[in-house]
Nucleic acid binder design. Structure first.
Lengths: 224, 224
DNA sequence: CCCGGACCTGACAGGATCCTGACGATCGCG
DNA sequence: CGCGATCGTCAGGATCCTGTCAGGTCCGGG
């Protein structure tokens, strides 16, 4: 995925990448980048630091908390602080404009070499009797298809990507709506309750979508 | 492993790396680098391009055919071709001198993060027969899962990150509730007592969660 | 324009957890 | 060995957290 607001530059880079055999989805602002990265699975994200709305740094920081996807930052600035900040928020590499497309492609190749291609595109995620198919936007529980709303699906998809990990309400909120949002309401609880009604055999006794008192929720296999 | 022929620079870098919590073995020429890298397993190799005998490029190319170890090249030259050559022979990253030690350390950290966490920096921390898994928010003692409340978990997590260090009650308090709080009550003592009941074989005779009279508490391995 | 679904919000109740204060046990020190 | 300071332990009540429900808002489709 390439996030770059300058449409001409974006198009130029996309061509270089395509010529090298990569497939590139282009987005033009930070929120769009965040949404796309959460919805689909990319091999690598190219993030311009200067993006309208949410800048590349913020996108990187947020996504790094949620996944290990490879991220390469692009910036016009070249101060060392900027660079360090980029690496600190979790970028895997960093390039300063102007750079040669050849170098960009070389770095992309280097980054991708580390991750076996097969490991990059898990088709359907599964935990216990629960499956989530992100591209198709479908969910099954015990083989039975389940209808989920957008918000519910976003929560499930986020959690099933890191089974067992505890998510705070704030983190889960970021997945349903955009960032910000300081909601102190019962929003997430309500979604979780509705999810339990749909995926748990006995919603009063959850086996997979568990509460971690004082922290948040986590998704587990259910039957060790 | 750091391969650098200039002894002064090598020593300076080694100190920076050590200060950051890394352990560094230093070698001074290419052949030595090759030998060391084949003999032991390193998390990452820092290779100066200018090495007597075998230069860094060659070392990198040779080792890359034998393993996937992370390699970061250091060079005085800054031509793009040189850089591309470095990435092409299989380096994972590339830095041009002069660079700031801070940047080096940041890049090292970034590279290390890419390696499957389970290999090097396991998400579960262990001290003696005790393990703490922060993302999953779980604790085991002697292999048996232990239920901890949020407060108890916060205390354990803080202590296991620096085994053996003594924590005052005030410091531990900061980990349970937010900051401030000047509680002078028995709060922490109660939590510690409850923890001992859960993780110690004999809570009256703590072996891991010890009291340091007049100071606070510390967590140790128990029986080495 | 009306309608329905999805989402958010606020309120409430039932628990789980935490804090507090008191008391006795233990420790360090002279 | 005696003393003050510190620590372990207990239980009750204050506090915080979550499940649940009933509106209210927003949005797109008919």
């Amino acid at each position: 995925m390439l996030a770059e607001d300058d449409r001409r530059q974006a198009e130029a880079l996309r061509r270089y990448l395509t010529a090298e055999g990569h497939e590139a989805t282009v987005v033009h602002d930070g929120e769009e980048a965040l949404r796309a990265a959460r919805q689909q699975t990319f091999d690598l994200l190219l993030l311009d630091v200067m993006l309208p709305g949410l800048d590349g740094m913020q996108v990187c920081r947020i996504l790094r908390q949620e996944s290990d996807v490879l991220m390469l930052m692009l910036t016009a600035r070249s101060s060392e602080d900027d660079l360090l900040r980029g690496l600190d928020v979790g970028a895997d590499d960093y390039m300063t404009k102007p750079f040669s497309p050849r170098e960009l492609v070389a770095r992309v190749r280097t980054l991708l070499r580390r991750v076996p291609a097969t490991a990059r595109h898990p088709p359907v995620l599964r935990v216990g009797r629960l499956t989530v198919d992100e591209p198709r936007h479908t969910v099954t529980a015990g083989g039975v298809p389940v209808d989920c709303t957008a918000g519910e699906f976003a929560i499930l998809a986020a959690m099933i990507r890191q089974p067992g990990r505890v998510f705070t309400r704030g983190q889960l909120l970021e997945h349903t709506r955009g960032i910000d949002r300081e909601s102190t309401g019962r929003t997430i609880d309500v979604h979780v309750m509705n999810l339990r009604r749909k995926i748990e055999a006995n919603p009063r006794r959850p086996r997979q979508l568990l509460t971690v008192y004082g922290v948040g929720y986590k998704l587990t296999a259910g039957t060790p």
